[in-house]
Design a protein around this nucleic acid. Structure first.
Length: 492
RNA sequence: CGGGGUGUGGCGCAGUUGGCUAGCGCACCUGGUUUGGGACCAGGUGGUCCUCCGUUCGAGUCGGAGUACCCCGACCA
């Protein structure tokens, strides 16, 4: 009873929030806008980290760590960058507390005011480029391919668990290159790494594209992104990769000597994904019973629930379970035997469904007699009985099927909520129903802004997938000529 | 910062026009019966009713001020 969540169709936001809290992923903390990630939620994040980190290493990157604090003057070196982040920065002004002489408890010591205020990083371009200045002098020092796992703070006015919190965990890659082409190629490569990760590990189909000027990262020349569709038809930006040109190199005076002896500014890229991916995972696959985790990211892939009447039966069942578990572990499957004796099996079934465990194995006295086990899959909520001997093998193939199935499910959901729209009237009705609209656009920020004002829809990206979008037409709003469609949606 | 709402055991809530010992569900503890889809019975632990001021014989309830949180906007990954 206590674990029941709001039905998804009734109130999507409430459903999401309930799910995050009741599945034990995260909760609000005492600090406004900040989130506590609970062990189960963090275990999923760790799986994500692990896989992403592997993919970064495979593409030649190394990890490093830079300071949490950024001198205020660093942030203001790049004009657009500071403008983009100034409104949401936490600032450190003092370095000491004292006991108030007037008895008001502990207060900030006015004598401990910092010479220069420190900003808690909202992103690390500035501090990193300040450092790169010392690392780079020759073309032989390039490229620098570095990633950092860190927390950042953006003082948002309204927050939501995982989707937008004042502090969040992420990775940010910062690369330095000798040529424009190489930096651009890096930015493209990494957005594709993100797309691969989303599809193959999170089982979420994404649209890869480029942001329009108004949605671009502050300080970037080009921002590439992956956009995913949630089950209410809204878009979630799941990852971004930026081509920064020479903006930061110029702001921090980072030059290198070419092999001809000339002096050139360095070219840059940066890219990141955050704990927001957790939100994507939850909203893309969850159902009225709770979380549905893709096997590739599930901390527990298989849970075993014993069914018994007498203690002797429990013992026999557990012995069988351990046998099967051992086989599974050998095959690289993570298994939990739920041997709590104060809870009934039905309760456990519901609880593990809420937590999204892909496969559940139930074994009872009847199974022991017949040498069978009951397998239940989370994605379809169906059950099958199989022989105990072939169970490990069957479970491994089942995990694979589930991963594929939930991707297909998400893909067909998205594809059935994406439309080419050519009339403004149709645009206004369709966007209210939720979903992605592929429309012509005249390429101006003014039109984009007006569409946003009237419908709350924004251009999520200019998709790369040229065969779908590359065609002549007229702007949905202004009627001016356009030679390609762009992706409109309401977004998180 | 604008509009709306809510503060009552750990959680979710009820509490009438002011009245008696502040109640219910969940959770928790003890004992027993149960166990193939969220068990049941009996007993039990746990509360400065957000804070301050006021009205009153009497305030969880009425008035004022403060404060915290939530929702809807503006801002954003």
């Amino acid at each position: 009873m206590a674990k029941e969540i709001t039905p998804r169709s009734e109130n999507y936001s409430q459903w999401y929030n309930d799910l995050v809290v009741k599945a034990g992923l995260a909760e609000n903390s005492a600090v406004r806008g900040c989130m506590v990630i609970k062990p189960y939620g963090y275990a999923i994040w760790e799986k994500m980290q692990h896989q992403l980190d592997k993919m970064f290493k495979e593409t030649g990157h190394q990890n490093a760590y830079f300071p949490l604090f950024i001198p205020k003057s660093f942030l203001s070196r790049e004009a657009e960058h500071v403008e983009g982040f100034a409104k949401e920065c936490a600032v450190v002004t003092h370095h000491r507390l004292m006991t108030d002489p007037n008895g008001n408890g502990v207060v900030v010591d006015p004598d401990a005011k910092l010479e220069e205020e420190l900003i808690v990083r909202p992103t690390s371009e500035t501090i990193i480029w300040n450092t790169y200045k010392n690392w780079i002098s020759s073309y032989r020092d390039l490229p620098i391919l570095v990633n950092q796992w860190a927390n950042v703070v953006r003082w948002e006015m309204r927050t939501r668990l995982f989707l937008r919190t004042a502090e969040f965990l992420w990775q940010e890659g910062h690369t330095a290159h000798a040529t424009k082409e190489e930096a651009l190629e890096e930015a493209t490569k990494m957005v594709n790494v993100y797309a691969d990760f989303a599809r193959n590990y999170m089982a979420i189909p994404v649209i890869v594209g480029e942001k329009t000027e108004s949605e671009r990262f502050a300080g970037a020349i080009t921002t590439l992104c992956i956009e995913a569709m949630m089950q209410d038809g809204k878009a979630l930006q799941a990852g971004t990769s930026h081509f920064l040109g020479q903006n930061f190199a110029k702001a921090f005076d980072v030059k290198y000597q070419t092999n001809e002896g000339g002096l050139e500014y360095v070219w840059a890229s940066s890219w990141g994904v955050s704990t927001r991916l957790m939100g994507a995972l939850i909203m893309a696959h969850g159902d009225d019973n709770g979380l549905v985790l893709p096997p590739n990211l599930a901390p527990i892939q298989v849970v075993m629930v014993p069914i018994f009447n007498k203690p002797e039966q429990l013992e026999a069942v557990l012995a069988k379970m351990k046998e099967i578990k051992e086989e599974l572990v050998k095959k690289g499957v993570s298994v939990k035997i739920d041997d709590r004796d104060n809870l009934r099996s039905g309760f456990k079934f519901a609880e593990w469904e809420l937590k999204g465990v892909p496969v559940r194995v139930a074994i009872g006295p009847r199974d022991l007699e017949n040498n069978t086990v009951e397998l239940a899959r989370r994605d379809t909520l169906t059950k099958e009985s199989t022989s105990a001997d072939s169970a490990p093998e069957r479970i491994v193939s089942l995990l694979d099927e589930i991963e594929k199935n939930i991707y297909q499910k998400a893909l067909s959901f998205r594809d059935s909520h994406i439309w080419k729209v050519d009339s403004w009237e149709e645009f206004k009705t369709k966007i209210e129903e939720g979903g992605f609209l592929l429309c012509h656009w005249d390429g101006t920020s003014e039109t984009e802004e007006k569409i946003k004002e009237e419908t709350k829809a924004t251009i999520r990206c200019i998709p790369f997938d040229s065969c779908v979008c590359q065609e002549e037409g007229k702007c949905i709003y202004s009627g001016k000529p356009s030679h390609r469609r762009v992706l409109f949606a309401k977004a998180y």
